[in-house]
Design a protein around this nucleic acid. Structure first.
Length: 215
DNA sequence: AACAACCTCAACCGCATCAGA
DNA sequence: GTCTGATGCGGTTGAGGTTGT
């Protein structure tokens, strides 16, 4: 979908919302962002960095909450955002990663340079989930994905000195009866975050080759 | 041409977690 | 240890576009 900034001007007026807290009343713009808002936001972030979103919103003179600014930046304005069709290779990677990680979109997105968690989530919901259902119908088998449908929160990133028992961190690759088990956070060592690493992909594909849903 | 049904995706919401006081 | 504001995440919504009838 093309950016809706231009045509969204007229919607701006009707998208005001008032957040009422008894006597305190703060009104924020809502809905689609205008080109002007985008420009202002990008300008402030360029000068002050992408942190303290509340301050950024105020500095930019945007009648938006910080949360909204952050989302706009991450999903749309951030540099190196890759827009457009998801390639077959990317799709395959998403499928494999989803099988491994479940609905942990930000982790999956972290391995797809230029793609946002929101984009991947949308792509999954609109394309891949259906594809999988069809596949399941055809084969009559059911593949269970890890962590999906769970409202359970993500794993604790910071390792404490105590033994952290997060049932979610240890994941079996492939089928349930697989005996390959490892710690996801070890596997996803983001300390040397970089572009899609071929080494990493090979490592992953090796592990998951036998249990790939389809390609 | 008109309408309905479906699809896509940007944006919002609620909650968990983090970080600092 | 507790409180509070900021941040991050996944689920959900709804406007606008597309396709089918």
């Amino acid at each position: 979908m093309a950016p809706m900034a231009d045509e969204s001007m007229e919607r701006e007026a009707k998208s005001m919302v008032s957040i009422t807290n008894n006597s305190v009343k703060k009104e924020f713009n809502r809905g689609a962002w205008t080109a002007e808002e985008d420009r202002k936001l990008a300008e402030v972030i360029e000068n002050h960095g992408a942190k303290k979103w509340k301050t950024i919103a105020a500095k930019a003179g945007l009648n938006r909450c910080g949360k909204s600014c952050r989302l706009r930046w991450l999903n749309y304005l951030r540099p190196n955002i890759k827009r457009g069709n998801i390639s077959d290779q990317e799709e395959d990677l998403i499928l494999r990663l989803h099988k491994l990680l479940g609905n942990r979109w930000s982790l999956i997105a972290g391995r797809l340079p230029g793609r946002t968690d929101n984009e991947i989530k949308n792509y999954w919901n609109s394309h891949l989930s259906k594809k999988i259902k069809q596949k399941e119908k055809q084969s009559g088998s059911s593949t269970t994905s890890v962590g999906s449908k769970s409202k359970k929160r993500r794993v604790v990133k910071k390792i404490s000195t105590d033994e952290v028992k997060e049932e979610d961190t240890s994941i079996n690759v492939g089928d349930q009866d697989s005996n390959i088990s490892f710690d996801v956070d070890d596997f996803f060592d983001f300390s040397n975050e970089g572009p899609l690493s071929l080494e990493w992909v090979s490592k992953f594909l090796e592990l998951d080759d036998s249990s790939c849903a389809f390609s």
